[in-house]
Simulated scan of single mutants.
Amino acid sequence: MSEPTRAWLRDAAVPAADLVAIREAVVLHGRQQAQGSDEQAIACALYEDGRLLAGAYGHTEFQRLYVSYLWVREDSRGQGLGGELLRQIEAQALARGCVDVLIETLLDEVAELYEHMGYACIAHVHDFVPGFTRHTLLKCWAARD
């Protein structure tokens, strides 16, 4: 019996499907450790005349809403749509039994907006990206079980 042949691949040489497989394997392993995952995608979007105006998506799991992305079309910013979008997706999460929500941003002014909406900064990394601080914010609606 011959020895298996091994080869290191790097960067673009690693097939995209294998990158997805790696991510999924890490997530699955973590969920197996935590046990009882109830992960479910969550999304909310606003359309105007059939065009996407604003949207947010992420997932809920272990009674927590994780907001991955929140976006408002550039020509519609400054009108309160981002805050309304966040309230909409929070309402969905509350209906699912979530007790808190976690969100991140690289923009100081967005972190301040979230703080005005009841979020507390629980961590930040200065120069996460040169010139930007990564803010991790948490909003609690109820105590954890």
Rank of each mutant, 00 (worst) to 15 (best):
V129K: 06
L113G: 10
I89K: 06
H116A: 03
A95S: 15
V129L: 08
D100R: 05
H124N: 14
D100T: 04
L107G: 04
Q88P: 09
G118M: 05
A93V: 11
G131F: 08
V129G: 00
A93N: 08
Y114A: 00
Q88G: 08
P130L: 05
Y114I: 00
A120Q: 15
L94F: 00
Y114E: 01
G97I: 07
A91V: 03
L106H: 13
I122W: 06
G118D: 03
L85T: 10
A91H: 07
M117A: 05
H124C: 06
D108H: 12
Q88L: 15
I89S: 11
A95T: 10
I122V: 15
D100Q: 13
V110R: 05
R134Y: 04
V129S: 06
V101H: 01
H126G: 12
D108M: 04
I122E: 13
F132A: 07
P130Q: 11
E90P: 08
E104A: 12
E104W: 02
T105Q: 06
G118W: 02
C98H: 09
L107V: 11
C121Y: 00
H124T: 10
E104C: 12
E90L: 15
V129N: 02
Y119N: 07
L107W: 05
P130F: 03
R96D: 02
D100L: 12
R134H: 12
L85H: 09
H126N: 15
D100H: 07
H116S: 14
G131W: 06
A123E: 08
I103M: 02
F128W: 11
E109N: 01
V101I: 11
A123D: 10
H124D: 08
F132Q: 13
L86A: 05
R96P: 03
E109Y: 04
